[in-house]
Amino acid sequence: MRLKPHQIEVIRRAVADLAGDDAQVSLFGSRTNDNARGGDIDLLVEIPHPVEESAWLIARIAGRISHRLGGQKIDVVLSAPNLKRFPIHDEAKKQGVAL
C-alpha cells in the first residue's frame, strides 16, 4: 500500500467527520500496488445505514481530503444500504485494504 501515515490519518479523520464514526474506509486501485507510482487515491467508503444526498457526501469527502493533501486527486466510491450497487463496488471491496 502506497500511503503515508499522515495521509491515512487525514483520510480517516475526514471520513469519520463527514460520514460518521461507523463508516469504514478502504483503499483500492493502483495505490494498493507497491510497484506502481503516483496515481489517484481510490477510496471505498462503506456506511452501514442509509445516506441522503450521496453525491454531495462523496464530493465533500473527496474535496476535504484533496484539500488537506495538497490537491491530491481523490476518487470516492460510496456504499450504503439504500444505494444501488454496481460492479465497481464489488471490485473495490475485493481489492480493498481497510484503513
Binding site: 444526498e53 450521496s54 453525491a55 454531495w56 462523496i58 464530493a59 465533500r60 473527496a62 474535496g63 476535504r64 484533496s66 484539500h67 490537491g71 481523490i74
Partner: peptide
Amino acid sequence: AELWITLRDLRNEMIHEQLLKHKTRI
C-alpha cells in the same frame, strides 16, 4: 478553498455518473 474543490468534485461526480435525476436534485 475546500468548498471550491468540493464543488468541482461534485460536478465531476455528477458528470461521471450521468445521473440526471440525481444531478438536479443535488
